[in-house]
Design a protein around this nucleic acid. Sequence first.
RNA 1: GGGGAAUUAACUCAGCUGGUAGAGUAUCUCCUUGACGUGGAGGAAGCCGUGGGUUCGAGUCCCUCAUUCCCCACCA
Length: 882
Amino acid sequence: MANQLPKNYDPKDFEKKVYQDWLEKGYFRAEVNENKTPFSIMLPPPNITGALHLGHALDQTIQDILIRYKRMSGFEALWMPGTDHASIATEVKVVEKVKEEKGISKKELGREKFMEEAWAWRDTYGRRIVEQMQQLGSSCDWDRERFTMDEGCSAAVTEVFVRLFEKGLIYRGNRIINWCPDCKTSLSDAEVEHEDKMGNFWHVKYPIKGEDGFIEIATTRPETILGDTAVAVHPDDERYKHLIGKIAILPVLNREIPIIADTYVDPEFGTGAVKITPCHDPNDFEVGVRHDLPQIRVMNDDASINELGGPYVGMARYECRKALVKDLEELGLLVEVKERNHSVGHCYRCHTAVEPLTSEQWFVRMEPLAKPAIDAVKDGSIKFVPERFDKTYFHWLENIRDWCISRQLWWGHRIPAYYCDDCQEITVARQAPDACSKCNSTNLRQDEDALDTWFSSALWTFSTLGWPEQTPELKYFHPTDVLVTGYDIIFFWVVRMVFSSLEFMEEIPFKHVLIHGLVRDAQGRKMSKSLGNGVDPLQVIDEFGADALRYTLIQGNSPGSDMRFSQEKLEAARNFANKLWNATRFVLMNLEEEVPTMETLADSLALEDEWILSRLERTRQEVTANLDKFELGLALQKIYDFTWNEYCDWYIEMTKTRLYGDNEDARKTAQAVLTEVLKGILRLLHPFMPFITEEIWQTLPNTIGSVMVAPWPKAMEEALKPQMETRMEHLMTAIRNIRNIRAEMNVPHSVKAALQVVAQTEESRQIITMGTPYLKSLAGIADVSFLEKEEDAPNLAVSTMIPGAQLYIPLAELIDLDKEIQRLEKEKEKALAEIKRVEGKLSNEGFMKKAPEKLVEEEKAKKAGFEEMLVTLEKRIAELKI
RNA sequence: GGGGAAUUAACUCAGCUGGUAGAGUAUCUCCUUGACGUGGAGGAAGCCGUGGGUUCGAGUCCCUCAUUCCCCACCA
């Protein structure tokens, strides 16, 4: 007897060991191998800020399935892992840590020391994330692990910056940007989340200089009044035409500001007169440029009011708002306050309300880069799965504005720009220059700012493969095959990878973008810290195992849509693993020392052997097709159905007669097929549930090495046996019907019935003959006999049928006649309904003319079948009624 | 304001290119049959959101409406 497994499936017994074994054997390693076709996926690098959550688990499970599937299919499969420095998020965390441990600010600590702290953080948390990924079973090539701030990635970042600068696609300028007063840094448009909030709409009147009148404006942010440098009206607005060119007096500050005409103003909106604050509103900034208005920025970096804010200096922005509104009221200049729904931008990291303000920053000119990125998707070079996400992608790129890439942070790639203190020249260079390129001064300062995190992740597909060097890896593995990510970061990342790769590699970064949804809690809510409904993947793994977690995340999930995560689903997944585990135990305990392979069988295959092998091949075909179309949920469902419903519920049960019988050849054949099909299941299931499949694989005879590197099952057209499948279907129908009758008649288990069969066709006779052992073992039949003529059929019996044969079970002493008549009447109703339905179709001229011939034939055959059934039923009922 | 998605059995969701509706969970009945009670056998349960259209035929394609959700947007 071969190996044994413990009675209950307990993943804790082996998951760690199995993973360790894979690692040691180097199975995750991918090399440049010209004899194989490459297949590569770049892991979206998790942030080093924290722990893995279920979203990561989903993201990585999908990638691991694809990678394992391709690896088994003979590709040189590279899954490149890594982590992201997450500039803002990490800096905030490290600042907090420093404050807590040392009681000082980052400025007090100094740049150098601060960076040391941040690197220490990276070491700790970067390591932790890798460990977590390994628990999940992720088969990344860890030898190639990268970090967005490692030497190579940093060199790529500098190279890209310099090249874009030289090409005129990066520039420095004083523009309106999004400012987070809490993180104290600028943000790109993508990093701002807009939220609709109920707020006030304050109507304020500004006096007109030298006149008695006023001009009334409306604002949702009164504190920005301090920075007003004009009032604008529409040039055609009759109400205000006479005021154009006059001077308004800014309340409280008493600054004189012009009343100007600009078509930007919508006369229908608000009062039709707009306060213009060039430093604190993007539109006003444009108006200001057009009219050459002064720029007065009234806020500090923490959004408090600066010295230009007159009496409000030092106040926080909302404090100032309150005070100013009060003052306006006292001055009699506040006309009214209306309630108004408007959208307020928030920082995507700390959720503080973002302040638009002017600031000196670095930008990437987007228009020339966006165009080729749009084309790459339009011409089908890059495909989104599901397709609809290309709309999101196009919309974003078609409306894109220049990308603000500088951040007022230390943790990140420092901008390679050097300022000359003497002549103010800016030198952008790959290496710190010794002297100013213009005046040769050595009074140079490097820009203090760091780059947007996404600037470096945009290069991820090629910076990780050695770019700007033309390494063999880069040539071999790029473009990558699939990018797997959530729909929430299409803007942040996908878009930027595409234009970066097109610009610098002159090719697409990936061929497919597989988009998945969010993992929500059982009530469908987003998982979040504040709700406290987050689920820790490690805890799930601890309780149910990584395989069950992976199963839960994939089962019933279709690309692009969100999913709910619940305890019940985990239990179902665990139960499936347990089922497979026990099926294996069954196989193992029935094997003998020598197990023949499929090639060395002495006996011919039985009906159920051919059937299960045919079904396995069909399943293989479907699963492979599904995987190729990224339909992972469907693929898994099919493996599940085959394993549980066909292999366990039918095939295993049917082999028992041979396994426990005296015929050694038949016994060995059953053993061989049981093992063979189980191996097939393990290989198909391995990408989804790597641990249990490996653990089981190792216990089976005639396996070499690991299931992880076993070949994906090859096509075996010759295994398809449609006739056997049909025969089995009929036999299964017979067995089910008899079981059904027994259940309805409440026949005790101990009572074995005789079965008498009237077979009209040779085929049905064969099915019953071949199926006799199974009718006995699975349907509680004592013996089977054939009747020559229908007239010989017993009267006091229950009956059922399969195509071509009537089956009688004489249970005279047990059956309730009325009940049986009732049962038959019900069947008759069903048959009548079916005949009616089919007749309807067949008498439909259109159907007969236009439907495919095959379908018409099928319907005709069905009709004949039901009519035959009806005749038999009617006869039976008549007989019983006597 | 623009775009997208969802609406299928009590619950959570599948359902590819149109051909008589599926799974898991829950529920009901029975079963300690030599892998598994994390199990086995059987059952009940669906006008596939509304109204129209295309078609011989629509859960599946097109339009309308309703409800819910998501994304985008410089409505001062």
